[in-house]
Nucleic acid binder design. Sequence first.
DNA 1: TGGGCATGCGCAA
DNA 2: TGCGCCTGCCCAT
Length: 244
Amino acid sequence: MPEGHTIRRLASEHERLFAGTPVRVSSPQGRFGDARVVDGAVLEATDAWGKHLFHEYAGGRIVHVHLGLYGTFTTHALPAPTPRETCRMRIVGDDAAVDLVGATICELLDGGGKAAVLARLGPDPLRPDADPDRAWQSLRRRRIPVGQALLDQSVVAGVGNVYRAEALKAHGIHPLRQASSITEEEWRALWRTLVRLLRKGVREGRISGRTIYRLDACQTCGAPVRRWDLAGRWAYACETCQPL
DNA sequence: TGGGCATGCGCAA
DNA sequence: TGCGCCTGCCCAT
């Protein structure tokens, strides 16, 4: 379930479990060979930006994780069970262990590497320092549908298919409207909704209260939900609530 | 019990 | 443009 709210929760949990103490880091599967570089190091802090998670170790070593579509972290009490064969990274601390499987990215970076990742990302609605105007400046120049632009992580970071569908629906905006046609007022309202929905997702640990995403009928008016392929991802709209 | 699908993204072709 | 990643969930059988 990895949209931005999931990553934020993982960052908080991992910081609570491990921050300030040395941890054992390994790669039972073997595909994260650089695990040995941080094995035994102190995890100083965690950070989340959009769908990207960072474990920041002493000495400027940073482990960067992106879960992709079906990567997951699981947390175990100690003693941790034997890791499954596909476990990309295991972290063991004083009180708990976490296992990572199925991730798209699990790599070692330095500060410059992290900066390069962040440079490709737009503002994250979950971050207090996020600048929605940066996203607006980016959005208004795009000659693509607004639904496509909202999934572009260089415009806004952390929004996935569910939040895209629900946020546009909440404001009666059809996903196929041109990004450049969105007014500044509409964008500010959309941003506030993204902040509200993502924060709710962090609080609840899941995305609740869907009104169109993967539903047959609009929960507002009962009209059938239209679904079509938009740049390789399913898009959803109630064409009564969101006229084009 | 097993097939299909997906809240994502990078890369090869 | 389509595949690989390699899991969890839902649904048909």
